[in-house]
Design a protein around this nucleic acid. Structure first.
Lengths: 200, 200
DNA sequence: TAATATAGACCAACCAGTCGGTTTGTTATT
DNA sequence: AATAACAAACCGACTGGTTGGTCTATATTA
């Protein structure tokens, strides 16, 4: 096997093992040794690829945020009218639950770490504000194209964002049962119809 | 000083010190030694009062939930009409922020721990469901007394609960700035007026 | 041979919890 | 009131075990 290829593979094995353990057991409890065991790698290998345990977490967080960004772009590129786009987003909720599985758990880990780690806090707040802007722009577009009636865009966007965050949090705490995915979808659909009043 | 009095005092000193450190630095990072130092107590004293570090956390959680229960009872005893009661609750939001200060931080710690610790998960889920029921009953009472129009009580209660949770989460992550308290209050007020439509 | 990748023994720091012993407060006895 | 007997509160050195990280040696690739 080529060198770079091999290196890349072990690196991703480490990341995978770390992500699983961080999500399932939490950052602090997860030891570097256990990551090495799960990744079938030695400690030397680990520290050859990453300078510290925290660096692995940071890399994981970056990857997560990058995936989120990709989702943003895709959502923005859709040229459907806003109510339809919102409906589509709501419909895709439970597939997101399935797809990501327990990987949402790491979100809670990030939030918990954000209280201590300034870097984690910064990227968390940045992400939240980006979501806020995303929702606000979506609603504004709806107003502009005449498909929505919204009194206060920023405020309503915050309500939407908060509710989604709350649902996500509950979903994580519930342990990601299939039931919860369905309930979440129902709730979001209702919210979209109720909170965001369509223009008559 | 009397024996029981003294004992009670050191016990509460331990609890106070532990709460602060758990909230500021997190459960795992906080060492028993540091708690002892902050409480100006020896390790022997610590383990005289509590069987383990986890027991301190559990005691803290119980106290927190008890305070929550007290709040519930007070809210239920109010005999105002539902829209007024909701308005009053919204108005008291930022005072809650001030009062509790950083003690909300411990909520995030509980949530993070809930993924690992079955006891923490159980009490977290129980609390969430109790809140869900609380909101649902509140809305139902509004419908019964003819002051609210609500399509689906359970669903709308979930929206309310989720949004409040999301706001709380953001508040904790923001570090509890005064700004956020005001914004939260505005958002909740708006939500109460918007999501829960008054009967015309 | 040179550079990169992996191995695993090793280390200092730290941590939760223990234990033998001391101080302080309470109760019973004289 | 003085003392003895007891129990609860407290102390801090110590232990067994774990942790994140280092270092030297070996293997693989270029």
């Amino acid at each position: 096997m080529k060198q770079e290829e091999r290196s890349q593979e072990t690196r991703s094995r480490i990341l995978q093992a770390a992500e699983r353990s961080f999500a399932e057991r939490g950052y602090d409890i997860t030891s570097v040794d256990s990551i090495c065991r799960a990744a079938e790698i030695s400690k030397g290998g680990f520290y050859h690829h990453f300078p510290s345990k925290g660096a692995v977490f940071a890399a994981l967080l970056d990857a997560w945020l990058a995936r989120l960004d990709a989702g943003f772009l895709r959502a923005k590129e859709g040229h459907a009218r806003v109510p339809d786009q919102i409906a589509a987003m709501a419909a895709s909720i439970d597939s997101i639950y399935d797809l990501a599985g327990s990987s949402w758990n790491i979100l809670l880990e990030v939030w918990a770490k954000a209280r201590t780690d300034p870097a984690a806090q910064a990227s968390t707040l940045t992400t939240l504000r980006r979501y806020q802007r995303f929702f606000a722009e979506l609603l504004q577009r709806g107003v502009d194209e005449g498909s929505l009636t919204v009194d206060d865009v920023e405020l309503q966007a915050r309500v939407l964002l908060s509710a989604v965050l709350g649902l996500l949090l509950q979903g994580i705490l519930e342990g990601g049962s299939a039931d919860w995915g369905r309930e979440t979808k129902r709730t979001v659909s209702f919210m979209m119809d109720g909170v965001v009043r369509r223009t008559r």
